[in-house]
């Protein structure tokens, strides 16, 4: 029993450590890039350009960067890009839902492809589902919280 406890603890810590390394590698560069970028004129241009598309989701134009980072890389990239933009809890929730459904599309698509599922189909499918989910929750938030 005692040795089992040690093995579990060790394995859990090892997994946690390897995920932490991956996390830092993503968070630090993305966070720094977005935190610096948001002070530039480029961020305003991107923000204004994308703001009509983000509005139905209850997000600002700049937050599109967080969604795209999540789609292409992973959730940590999405969080790192979102947090410097001072989001409300509703905005964090929407981005969490959308990137939760649809993230790391290139790598995960390749993995699912190995199990016999069409990668192109899963990518289009996940993006579609995430947008529908995001729009639905945003509409709900508007009704309930105004």
């Amino acid at each position: 029993m005692q040795s089992n406890f040690k093995i579990n603890l060790k394995k859990g810590l090892r997994n946690g450590f390897s995920v932490s390394i991956k996390l830092i590698k993503t968070i630090v560069p993305f966070y720094i890039a977005i935190d610096l970028l948001r002070h530039t004129q480029l961020a305003n241009i991107i923000g204004n350009l994308l703001s009509p598309f983000m509005k139905p989701l209850g997000l600002t134009g700049k937050m599109a960067i967080a969604i795209i980072s999540g789609y292409l890389v992973n959730l940590y990239a999405a969080i790192a890009a979102l947090v410097p933009l001072n989001p409300t809890w509703q905005q964090v929730t929407i981005v969490g839902l959308m990137t939760g459904i649809s993230h790391n599309l290139i790598i995960e698509g390749a993995i699912l492809h190995k199990t016999g599922t069409n990668a192109f189909f899963t990518i289009v499918f996940r993006i579609t589902v995430s947008i529908i989910a995001g729009l639905t929750l945003a509409e709900y938030f508007r009704l309930v919280y105004g």
Binding site: G16, L23, L36
Partner: peptide
Amino acid sequence: ELFWHAILGSLKLSIKLILIIVPLMVIYEF
């Protein structure tokens, strides 16, 4: 100062998330 702010913020966020992930992985093993 801007750089410092960005680096500090990214580290704070990383630590916050690590404090959640590591216990979670340990709990899963058990």
